[in-house]
Protein backbone atom coordinates (compact mmCIF):
# COMPACT_ATOMS: atom_id res chain seq x y z
CA UNK A 1 0.00 0.00 0.00
CA UNK A 2 1.19 3.47 -0.80
CA UNK A 3 1.15 6.34 1.67
CA UNK A 4 -1.95 7.83 0.05
CA UNK A 5 -3.81 4.54 0.42
CA UNK A 6 -2.81 4.32 4.08
CA UNK A 7 -4.10 7.85 4.68
CA UNK A 8 -7.40 6.98 2.97
CA UNK A 9 -7.65 3.76 4.98
CA UNK A 10 -7.09 5.51 8.33
CA UNK A 11 -9.40 8.38 7.39
CA UNK A 12 -12.21 5.98 6.41
CA UNK A 13 -11.93 4.07 9.70
CA UNK A 14 -11.88 7.33 11.67
CA UNK A 15 -15.05 8.45 9.88
CA UNK A 16 -16.62 5.08 10.52
CA UNK A 17 -15.84 5.13 14.26
CA UNK A 18 -17.10 8.71 14.56
CA UNK A 19 -20.35 7.73 12.84
CA UNK A 20 -20.70 4.57 14.90
CA UNK A 21 -20.23 6.47 18.16
CA UNK A 22 -22.65 9.25 17.17
CA UNK A 23 -25.32 6.78 16.03
CA UNK A 24 -25.02 4.69 19.18
CA UNK A 25 -25.05 7.71 21.50
CA UNK A 26 -28.04 9.25 19.72
CA UNK A 27 -29.91 5.97 19.87
CA UNK A 28 -29.47 5.89 23.65
CA UNK A 29 -30.55 9.52 23.71
CA UNK A 30 -33.71 8.59 21.83
CA UNK A 31 -34.45 5.76 24.27
CA UNK A 32 -33.60 7.60 27.49
CA UNK A 33 -34.89 11.16 26.97
CA UNK A 34 -38.48 11.87 27.90
CA UNK A 35 -38.94 15.21 26.13
CA UNK A 36 -40.26 14.94 22.56
CA UNK A 37 -38.15 17.73 21.06
CA UNK A 38 -34.93 16.41 22.62
CA UNK A 39 -35.71 13.04 21.07
CA UNK A 40 -36.22 14.75 17.72
CA UNK A 41 -32.82 16.37 18.14
CA UNK A 42 -31.21 13.00 18.92
CA UNK A 43 -32.72 11.44 15.79
CA UNK A 44 -31.68 14.40 13.67
CA UNK A 45 -28.06 14.18 14.84
CA UNK A 46 -28.07 10.41 14.39
CA UNK A 47 -29.32 10.66 10.80
CA UNK A 48 -27.36 13.69 9.67
CA UNK A 49 -23.98 13.02 11.29
CA UNK A 50 -24.03 9.34 12.31
CA UNK A 51 -25.34 7.72 9.14
CA UNK A 52 -23.52 10.21 6.90
CA UNK A 53 -20.16 9.57 8.57
CA UNK A 54 -20.64 5.81 8.32
CA UNK A 55 -21.66 6.10 4.64
CA UNK A 56 -18.68 8.31 3.84
CA UNK A 57 -16.33 5.94 5.69
CA UNK A 58 -17.62 2.96 3.71
CA UNK A 59 -17.55 4.99 0.48
CA UNK A 60 -13.89 5.94 0.93
CA UNK A 61 -12.98 2.40 1.97
CA UNK A 62 -14.68 0.87 -1.11
CA UNK A 63 -12.12 2.46 -3.52
CA UNK A 64 -14.59 2.19 -6.37
CA UNK A 65 -15.63 5.43 -7.98
CA UNK A 66 -19.19 4.27 -8.84
CA UNK A 67 -19.89 2.96 -5.33
CA UNK A 68 -18.38 6.12 -3.88
CA UNK A 69 -20.63 8.28 -6.03
CA UNK A 70 -23.75 6.23 -5.19
CA UNK A 71 -23.08 6.37 -1.45
CA UNK A 72 -22.29 10.08 -1.65
CA UNK A 73 -25.61 10.80 -3.39
CA UNK A 74 -27.47 8.68 -0.81
CA UNK A 75 -25.68 10.60 1.94
CA UNK A 76 -26.76 13.97 0.48
CA UNK A 77 -30.33 12.77 -0.05
CA UNK A 78 -30.42 11.39 3.50
CA UNK A 79 -29.39 14.77 4.93
CA UNK A 80 -31.96 16.69 2.84
CA UNK A 81 -34.86 14.31 3.57
CA UNK A 82 -34.03 14.25 7.29
CA UNK A 83 -34.05 18.04 7.44
CA UNK A 84 -37.39 18.24 5.62
CA UNK A 85 -39.12 15.57 7.71
CA UNK A 86 -37.77 16.73 11.07
CA UNK A 87 -38.79 20.31 10.25
CA UNK A 88 -42.35 19.27 9.36
CA UNK A 89 -42.71 17.01 12.42
CA UNK A 90 -41.41 19.72 14.76
CA UNK A 91 -43.62 22.44 13.30
CA UNK A 92 -46.73 20.31 13.64
CA UNK A 93 -45.76 19.21 17.15
CA UNK A 94 -45.31 22.87 18.13
CA UNK A 95 -48.74 23.74 16.75
CA UNK A 96 -50.21 20.74 18.60
CA UNK A 97 -48.90 22.17 21.89
CA UNK A 98 -46.50 19.34 22.67
CA UNK A 99 -44.63 20.33 25.82
CA UNK A 100 -40.96 21.23 25.71
CA UNK A 101 -39.21 21.44 29.10
CA UNK A 102 -42.65 21.37 30.77
CA UNK A 103 -44.02 24.32 28.80
CA UNK A 104 -46.26 24.13 25.73
CA UNK A 105 -46.27 26.81 23.04
CA UNK A 106 -49.66 28.15 24.11
CA UNK A 107 -48.51 28.38 27.74
CA UNK A 108 -45.29 30.07 26.64
CA UNK A 109 -47.22 32.69 24.65
CA UNK A 110 -49.49 33.29 27.64
CA UNK A 111 -46.48 33.73 29.92
CA UNK A 112 -44.89 36.17 27.47
CA UNK A 113 -48.14 38.13 27.21
CA UNK A 114 -48.44 38.20 31.00
CA UNK A 115 -44.84 39.39 31.32
CA UNK A 116 -45.42 42.14 28.75
CA UNK A 117 -48.57 43.24 30.58
CA UNK A 118 -46.68 43.47 33.89
CA UNK A 119 -43.87 45.47 32.22
CA UNK A 120 -46.38 47.84 30.63
CA UNK A 121 -48.14 48.35 33.97
CA UNK A 122 -44.80 49.14 35.60
CA UNK A 123 -43.98 51.73 32.95
CA UNK A 124 -47.39 53.36 33.34
CA UNK A 125 -46.94 53.43 37.11
CA UNK A 126 -43.50 55.07 36.72
CA UNK A 127 -44.94 57.75 34.43
CA UNK A 128 -47.73 58.46 36.94
CA UNK A 129 -45.15 58.79 39.73
CA UNK A 130 -43.06 61.19 37.62
CA UNK A 131 -46.14 63.33 36.89
CA UNK A 132 -46.97 63.46 40.60
CA UNK A 133 -43.49 64.77 41.40
Amino acid sequence: MTLFNWILFIFSWLLFFAGFFVTFACFFGFVRFSDFFVRVHAIKISNIYGISFILLGVAINSRDIITFFQLFVICIFNILSTLAIIHSICRIALNANIEHAGISRRKYNELIAENERIEAEKQIQEKINQNKK
Binding site: I43, S46, N47, I51, L55, V58, S62, T67, I74, I85
Partner: peptide, 23 residues
Protein backbone atom coordinates in the same frame (compact mmCIF):
# COMPACT_ATOMS: atom_id res chain seq x y z
CA UNK B 1 -45.75 11.97 17.59
CA UNK B 2 -43.36 9.57 19.32
CA UNK B 3 -44.80 6.78 17.21
CA UNK B 4 -44.31 8.74 14.00
CA UNK B 5 -40.77 9.64 15.05
CA UNK B 6 -39.98 6.01 15.83
CA UNK B 7 -41.46 4.99 12.48
CA UNK B 8 -39.22 7.41 10.64
CA UNK B 9 -36.15 6.29 12.58
CA UNK B 10 -37.04 2.64 11.92
CA UNK B 11 -37.55 3.15 8.18
CA UNK B 12 -34.33 5.13 7.82
CA UNK B 13 -32.37 2.42 9.63
CA UNK B 14 -33.98 -0.29 7.51
CA UNK B 15 -32.97 1.59 4.36
CA UNK B 16 -29.37 1.87 5.53
CA UNK B 17 -29.45 -1.78 6.65
CA UNK B 18 -30.54 -2.83 3.15
CA UNK B 19 -27.89 -0.61 1.63
CA UNK B 20 -25.13 -2.19 3.68
CA UNK B 21 -26.48 -5.65 2.95
CA UNK B 22 -26.24 -4.95 -0.78
CA UNK B 23 -22.70 -3.66 -0.37
Amino acid sequence: FTRILSLYYFLMNIVVLLLFYFI
